[in-house]
Write a protein that binds this DNA or RNA. Structure first.
Lengths: 100, 100
DNA sequence: ATTTGACTTGTCAATAATTGTCCAAAGTTA
DNA sequence: TAACTTTGGACAATTATTGACAAGTCAAAT
């Protein structure tokens, strides 16, 4: 269960690439990439997809990490975190049905 | 499994109060309150607590609805919604341990 | 048919939150 | 030490959210 940042860093290091190289290829600032890898900034969905292409990995792997990071970050300091997540699941489910 | 808006409306109606009465008591615009009850705008945490006091209900009931609404809204259009929520649970759990 | 009262809708400015950039500092390696 | 990689922090830019106001709908009453 890793954060998106951890995953991105693993992929980069496994290929022996430098931040500056990846950053150049993805047309972003090196410092920003560094922050992404340390989960200090969150990329947007589009950027996540670009990472997936660049590292040649399944987009869902990255998107799942990205989305769950966002959710976890949002509830992290809440006492009701766990219950709220359960309730959210039900709401998502309910809403999906309504849409049909 | 109701939204915060639905809950707020139920409480107001059960007391036979008008939007403008509640809005006045809570020092907010009637239109804004209307939006809260229809889940068009999300109140902040403080406002939720104020609602709890005003309607004399358990704050957790409202906070849970509020938080789960926020989460559900965030993942609603994502294919990976369900998986992401599960993953977020684990992440919250992991992170809690790390803090200790 | 007009008025009244309750609620809703749309728009806009203000505010807040997040993101991206730049540069300096810190850490690494040779 | 020198060259290079990575990180931190401050600030600008962008994006999202909020609240206020005016105008609108609808139903019931007159």
């Amino acid at each position: 269960m890793n954060t998106l940042g951890q995953i991105l860093r693993e992929h980069r290091e496994s290929k022996g690439l430098l931040l500056r190289q990846v950053a150049a290829a993805m047309e972003m600032d090196t410092a920003l990439l560094s922050k992404f890898e340390r989960d200090e900034r969150k990329p947007n969905k589009e950027q996540v997809l670009t990472f997936a292409k660049y590292y040649n990995v399944n987009a869902d792997e990255l998107l799942l990490a990205w989305l769950s990071d966002k959710i976890a970050g949002e509830v992290q300091n809440e006492d009701l975190a766990k219950e709220a997540l359960k309730a959210a699941e039900k709401k998502v489910e309910l809403f999906k049905r309504k849409k049909k």
